[in-house]
Design a protein around this nucleic acid. Structure first.
Lengths: 333, 333
DNA sequence: GTGAAAGCGCTAACAT
DNA sequence: ATGTTAGCGCTTTCAC
């Protein structure tokens, strides 16, 4: 066993044509007779041939792989259930292209350096940025590498430089804020995400879009996308504005923490305080009451991001896309 | 700009030695004079040289990458927050080796074929299997490919063939079952995972280890690791055994569904029915009441799995490892 | 300790 | 439409 892996030469020999022709068939070039093509395809199957990507890459200087770069610091990724979804959609979209997906985490200095080296080494044809922050030093490295880049979620401040696919954070925030207001709630607070992330900044903008000057400083507190952070923020909010009767929390995970704080404070949800989340992640139906929230079409976002990247690789021009969100009404508001 | 990438020849020229010597320095071979080494290192930095993996791989037929294969069907992965953790730990562990992590999903027929081809093509040095099922056709493909394989979580029925790192599912199930029994609960039910997964089979074994013949067929129902499945299973259990006063649910996600079913049936938790989960995932603290559960050291499991794989790649023999779990007492039991 | 040279498997330009 | 050929950038004998 463990016979040596067949090469293109073996296929050529088995099919009675030259290496060149085999290569042409493999790469779908024109100018190949039907007979030759058939013979080659048979031989490929017969020999169990699989192209050697290294050799191909050496010659073409394309690698057949793209890298997905996560710039979240560890703890956040750790808590983020959304990430699996993104990954899934990406691999699925890449499936037909037989492009490999390599994954790198650039959470700290060392990670960024590694990514930068990898990219500079030309080891990937393109990069997919996930949750890059504004001013992320990684960005420079990536852009500097000169390979096509697409972001999953806008990169704040670089929207025109880095094409992206994203959910309509601002619009979604408007939807739920309007819903809360439409319920007759008059004192609506908000717990935001970190303001250097699109979900942090844009969801807050959507909130103020609707509430205008009623969105006062003390009614808005900033969280960090963790459950504990949401709980803390809710307590602060309750101190700032004891009379509050609704709150929009920028992520379901934080909302679950907020629910706990509300419960501990003896406020009924949604009776005393209506709670709106964001994401529609698995956690939204695990809480009690279940969260009324905004569904982000994350699968589609990730799928679109990959589509953009692939288009870029193929030399097309691309336009960023923003996908609509959807209000999901459950029990918390 | 966009100057051509420097090659080993540029480094050789810049440092005044031959390509061969540069290569020796790069690969840490002996028999290189200090002077030469220094000169080469300087030149590497000066030129910004990064080895071309394709070329190296072509020559050595090692690729410098390993592939992580997810054999979960899509929907399950979709709901599984644990997966991010595994991924994180794996990338971290690989960081120093400058080994790339490529990710493939083998959820369906097409996915499996892709993985098989990838492996047969020699595109990875090793494979890390995540949640492979018993009798998974993927397994054959992987083993057939002849590259080192390690599983994250035991592969049922192939424990001795495929080295693995896993949490002590059986022991953990015993812990929580004993805890439930120690609370004085006499009619303890269980919701298992799919029995062709280690978490399904082993946690059920741990349960019956403790309860012996008290674990009757009607007290055990099988779930599918989803929230909806957990809810359904709990309803069935309630029909089968209305007098039940405790339930061990094989995952937190299912437990959150069970909690809902219990709530809908008007049973107080933990008053009427104590609920124990498994995983200690983010969802365990989002539910109300918060889940008493079993913490799996998933980070460590994934880290160990990678360590085993790396050892295998280095030609060492390895032994599977099983890591202890920990009971986490909260409010549901 | 170091240089020279062969060649890994493939693609693409050039012949024919 | 097909065969021939020249490397892609690297590692690794083999000489010295």
């Amino acid at each position: 066993m463990a016979r040596k892996r067949p090469t293109i030469n073996d296929v050529a020999a088995a099919s009675g044509v030259s290496r060149g022709t085999v290569s042409r068939v493999l790469n779908g070039h024109a100018n190949v007779s039907l007979a030759a093509e058939l013979a080659v395809r048979r031989a490929v199957i017969e020999t169990g041939f699989v192209v050697n990507r290294a050799a191909r890459s050496l010659k073409t200087s394309r690698t057949g792989s793209i890298v997905m770069v996560l710039s979240e610091p560890q703890e956040r990724l750790f808590e983020d259930p959304n990430f699996s979804v993104v990954l899934r959609a990406a691999t699925r979209r890449l499936a037909d292209r037989d492009t490999a997906l390599v994954l790198m985490v650039a959470g700290d200095r060392g990670g960024r350096d590694r990514v930068a080296r990898y990219l500079r080494g030309g080891h990937a044809d393109g990069a997919l940025l996930v949750s890059a922050h504004a001013g992320d030093p990684l960005l420079e490295a990536v852009e500097h590498s000169g390979i096509p880049v697409v972001a999953c979620g806008a990169v704040l401040g670089r929207e025109s430089a880095v094409p992206y696919a994203a959910a309509d954070d601002r619009g979604g925030a408007r939807q739920i804020t309007e819903y809360l207001a439409g319920l007759g709630r008059r004192r609506i607070g908000m717990i935001t995400g970190p303001l250097d992330t699109p979900g942090g900044a844009l969801r807050m903008e959507g909130f103020t879009d609707v509430l205008g000057r009623k969105a006062t400083k003390r009614m808005v507190v900033h969280g960090d996308y963790t459950q504990a952070g949401g709980e803390r923020a809710m307590r602060t909010l309750l101190e700032n504005a004891p009379a509050l009767d609704a709150v929009f929390v920028a992520s379901d995970l934080m909302a679950s923490g907020a629910l706990r704080a509300l419960h501990d404070a003896g406020r009924a949800v949604p009776g005393d305080v209506a709670v709106g989340g964001f994401d529609d992640s698995a956690i939204a139906t695990a809480t009690s009451p279940m969260l009324t929230t905004v569904r982000q079409p994350l699968e589609e976002v990730a799928g679109e991001a990959v589509r953009l990247l692939v288009a870029l690789l193929d030399g097309d021009r691309v336009e960023s896309v923003v996908l609509p969100t959807e209000l999901v009404v459950r029990d918390s508001a």
